[in-house]
Deep mutational scan, measured.
Amino acid sequence: DETGKELVLVLYDYQEKSPREVTIKKGDILTLLNSTNKDWWKIEVNDRQGFVPAAYLKKLD
């Protein structure tokens, strides 16, 4: 059920640097789980959840 889920576009590649982070690729469109922290957003990638720098993402309307 995708209702109410926010999507984000990945602006730059990011390689995870800790187990709490996930790797993302430029151009991916992913589900945003939590954006309350202005610097690190929690997203879902391939059934994995983790954090990436918010500056690497853009919210889609």
Rank of each mutant, 00 (worst) to 15 (best):
L57S: 00
F51Q: 03
S35G: 11
K26H: 06
L11T: 04
F51R: 03
E16T: 07
Y56W: 06
I43A: 01
N46T: 08
W41Y: 04
R20W: 15
L9N: 02
P53W: 03
R20C: 12
N34W: 06
D13P: 06
R48Q: 08
E16L: 08
K59Q: 06
N34Q: 10
Y56H: 11
F51A: 02
L30I: 10
L30A: 14
N37F: 08
G27R: 02
N37E: 14
D61E: 14
E16N: 06
Y14H: 04
P53H: 02
T23N: 05
F51C: 09
L60V: 13
N34M: 08
K42H: 08
W40V: 03
S35R: 08
G27Q: 02
D1E: 12
L57V: 09
I24N: 00
W41F: 04
Q49S: 10
T23P: 03
Y12K: 13
F51H: 06
I24M: 08
W40C: 06
Y56M: 09
K17Q: 15
L7F: 10
E44Q: 14
S18W: 07
K25L: 08
E44G: 06
D1K: 05
D39T: 15
W40T: 02
V8T: 03
T31E: 11
W40D: 01
A54N: 03
A54Q: 07
P19Y: 08
L30P: 03
I43L: 08
E6I: 14
T36Q: 12
L7A: 06
W41H: 03
L11Q: 04
R20S: 14
P53K: 03
E6H: 13
K17G: 07
P19T: 09
K26Y: 04
V10M: 01
Q49V: 14
L11W: 03
Y14A: 00
P19Q: 10
L9S: 04
T31D: 05
E2P: 14
K59T: 06
V52P: 00
E6R: 13
K38P: 15
R20A: 15
P53T: 01
V22F: 06
L32E: 00
Q49F: 07
K26M: 07
N46E: 13
G27C: 07
K25H: 11
K17M: 10
N34H: 06
E6Q: 15
L60Q: 06
V45I: 12
K17P: 03
L7S: 08
V8S: 02
A54P: 05
E2K: 07
R20F: 14
V8A: 07
L7H: 10
E16H: 07
K42Q: 11
